[in-house]
Design a protein around this nucleic acid. Structure first.
Length: 696
RNA sequence: GCCCCCAUCGUCUAGAGGCCUAGGACAUCGGCUUUUCAAGCCGACGACACGGGUUCGAAUCCCGUUGGGGGCGCCA
């Protein structure tokens, strides 16, 4: 039973593509033109179709040289050899009986009964062929063949403006940018602001600023315009309405009036019966008048696509062919109750209208693509080239998201509350919201906005890990380093090289070299990258970077310092990993003397502990310093080294008490520079204050 | 629950059936250096998830198991 033929889903074994009628016609035709009717693509699909049969590895071995030859196969004497080998491969491989797509379990049952069953998606076969690069030649043709042979390559980044740009989004943007640059095409940004409920004011500006900070400039989009605008979906509603109208008129879509509760109940029922949910399509579609009546009654009115009853094959450049069976497809909503389009609908309409040729996006969109193929089919639109990027996970293995930070802080707040250290009223005040919102946040019902979350985190002493691009800017990373690092998440050039500038990436990037496995975001490695880059960067770059860091760190005491001082700070911090290191190390130098805070642990460890040896040293050194004529770093070093030698203690024993006395902590730039920067008066005053405080 | 994708050191990865005793980078550990924090230098540890199959030969091709991830919205 497993292998019986279902005429609707019959697929000829010699490589006929499942989505022929999804705009695949044109695609297949053009490919054939490229390769010749009996070209490599044909052989490959032949092999792919039969790979499950014995002798397949033999076939693969035969195909390898064919692929190699394919470059010379179009004309010249290579063609004859190519043809001969082609024939031999075909003779060895009889066509496989047609079969239909089926779930894994049915396939297993079929195989057990000895039926010829092909693996459901064919992805594995394609993938393995890709891996051996047998297909690379063909893949390149397929990848460019869909559109780029006749059109200029156009990629887009289509973020939803709900906050800052995050790592995954940045990588998507970067890859789209690189592909456009590599193929001499254009890169557009489109704002997908179709969710009125979740509209976050200002989010778009922040997102775009983050992109610019990274150096990702777009050819078309907000702020710069372009020939296919407007580039905000909120300004394109006419297009969507028009398109929906078309589907409605042609009977390819229909009105539906279900409430959320009704839908929820249906889904729950499906779950209970252990089947996937599909919207129950009515036998007769509601009329325009029915829709008006429903509206008058206050019922929600949406437009659903009448999903064509067929399998879809997503031809993905990275993943290979991914099949989605008809029974998995649903009559999804195209137009929401508020009259705005859903993502699926808007994306298909806009990608066509904006002439997008290549779609690179996260793998979380992979299955959605089937919906898009269906819509393209209904409109008669062509299908862009798809490439779904592996997902970036955080180190714990889950998807990276802002929610993690929310959770982290919430947990800390609960602990603090339980210990009586934080009252609900205080929480609300810190977060800058009313008590009710604060309570709801504590329950996990809502998320705090960025500033509020930061404020609360600071209060409960939680150091937030960087998640969004902006976080890395605030921490003091170099944008070019972050970009370099992100590029390596899921992509490699195939050699041992790891350091690239954006221009260099443009030159070597290729979609074929994007991997299929999810990548974890390794902060330690990024830190190392930044450390190395910072050490190697010219002084001007570092100064500009530090300025940028200060621009987004309002509370830093280094703010407002002149370039000469900042340059000096950079000079005396040659081993800083991020700009925050410089900031934290030098901060104490720039707070007023009477506001200097002493770290009790530092005071205890360095000054008072062990019979107050540190204080004694400090007092002795103070007098030596006071006698100095020239308060320069060089002179200070000479004096302190001389003292350390004459007193028979290591320099550390001398430097640390001074350090704690003048900075309040055990960490600062080199002690000589620290003193020089602080100046004679303030240095001595701070030392005196420290001696007084500790009763020295 | 249903569907889909994925699988090489702890992490990112290289790997085109024989060049693999599996390469590089980060992390870790040990040593050196050292005025703090760092940084630097030298060295070590460390992986083909498991079970079948194909093949003279498998990290690589096939099947299965296990594990991980994603989707199942009037979010995108």
């Amino acid at each position: 039973m497993a292998a019986h033929v279902d005429h609707d889903h019959e697929r000829a074994a010699d490589g006929e593509r499942g989505h022929r009628d999804v705009g695949g016609d044109r695609q297949a035709d053009r490919q054939n033109e490229e390769e010749g009717a009996d070209g490599l693509g044909d052989v490959v699909s032949h092999v792919v179709s039969h790979h499950g049969l014995p002798g397949s590895s033999l076939a693969a071995r035969r195909v390898a040289p064919l692929a190699f030859l394919s470059r010379t196969a179009r004309g010249g004497k290579g063609a004859a050899v190519f043809e001969r080998m082609l024939t031999r491969v075909r003779e060895r491989m009889p066509p496989m009986p047609p079969c239909r797509l089926m779930p894994r379990r049915a396939a297993q049952a079929g195989r057990a009964q000895g039926a010829p069953v092909r693996q459901r998606s064919g992805t594995l076969r394609l993938r393995s062929l890709y891996r051996r690069r047998i297909l690379v030649g063909a893949a390149r043709i397929a990848f460019q063949g869909t559109a780029s042979m006749t059109d200029v390559v156009r990629t887009r980044f289509a973020p939803s403006p709900t906050g800052y740009l995050h790592i995954g989004g940045a990588r998507t943007a970067l890859f789209n940018y690189l592909l456009a640059r590599r193929l001499g095409g254009r890169f557009a940004v489109r704002i997908e602001d179709t969710d009125q409920a979740r509209h976050v004011p200002d989010a778009e500006g922040r997102l775009l600023d983050d992109m610019l900070w990274l150096g990702l400039e777009w050819d078309e989009g907000p702020r710069v315009g372009g020939p296919h605008g407007p580039y905000h979906q909120s300004q394109r509603l006419e297009h969507y309405r028009e398109h929906a109208r078309r589907l409605l008129d042609e009977g390819k879509a229909y009105y539906a009036f279900d409430t959320r509760e009704e839908l929820e109940a249906m889904r729950a029922a499906a779950q209970r019966e252990k089947r996937g949910f599909r919207y129950p399509r009515p036998a007769r579609f509601p009329s325009e008048r029915d829709a008006q009546r429903a509206r008058a009654e206050g019922r929600p009115v949406v437009v659903r696509l009448r999903m064509p009853e067929q399998d879809y094959v997503i031809r993905d450049t990275i993943l290979g062919d991914v099949s989605v069976r008809a029974q998995e497809m649903d009559d999804f909503v195209c137009i929401k109750g508020d009259g705005w389009p859903t993502y699926h609908f808007a994306v298909v309409v806009d990608d066509e209208l904006m002439r997008v040729t290549h779609v690179l996006r996260g793998q979380e969109h992979l299955i959605n693509t089937a919906n898009h193929l269906a819509l393209q089919q209904c409109f008669g639109y062509r299908t862009p080239v798809y490439a779904h990027l592996p997902i970036i996970l955080n180190m714990s293995g889950s998807k990276m998201s802002k929610r993690d930070n929310d959770k982290l802080v919430r947990q800390a707040v609960r602990t603090a509350s339980a210990a009586g250290k934080l009252t609900p009223a205080q929480l609300a005040e810190i977060a800058g919201c009313d008590a009710e919102t604060a309570a709801r946040w504590l329950e996990g019902d809502v998320q705090l906005d960025d500033a509020a979350l930061r404020a609360v985190a600071r209060r409960v002493g939680v150091v937030l890990p960087e998640i969004q691009i902006h976080d890395f800017r605030v921490s003091g990373y170099l944008p070019e380093v972050l970009l370099n690092f992100i590029a390596l998440l899921g992509w490699s050039a195939g050699d041992d090289r790891e350091k690239y500038t954006l221009d260099e990436l443009c030159a070597v990037f290729s979609v074929e070299r994007i991997g299929r496995t999810n990548a974890r975001f390794d902060r330690d490695k990024l830190l190392n990258f930044n450390t190395t880059a910072l050490a190697a960067a010219p002084a001007e770059r570092k100064l500009a970077g530090l300025r940028d860091y200060l621009a987004v760190n309002e509370q830093s005491p280094l703010r407002g310092l002149g370039d000469d001082v900042l340059a000096k700070l950079i000079e005396i911090s040659p081993t800083a990993r991020i700009f925050r290191d410089i900031d934290e190390k030098a901060a104490a130098l720039f707070v007023p003397d009477d506001r200097l805070e002493y770290d009790p642990d530092a005071v205890d460890k360095v000054l008072t502990r062990g019979d107050r040896a540190g204080l004694k040293t400090l007092a002795a050194v103070r007098d030596a310093l006071a006698r100095l004529g020239d308060w320069s770093a060089a002179e200070l070093e000479r004096a302190l080294r001389a003292y350390s030698e004459s007193s028979g203690q290591g320099l550390g024993k001398v430097a640390q008490p001074i350090r704690v006395a003048v900075t309040g902590t055990t960490v600062s730039p080199p002690i000589f520079d620290t003193l020089a920067l602080l100046g004679r008066e303030r240095s001595l005053a701070r030392i005196d204050a420290a001696l007084r405080r500790s009763g020295g």
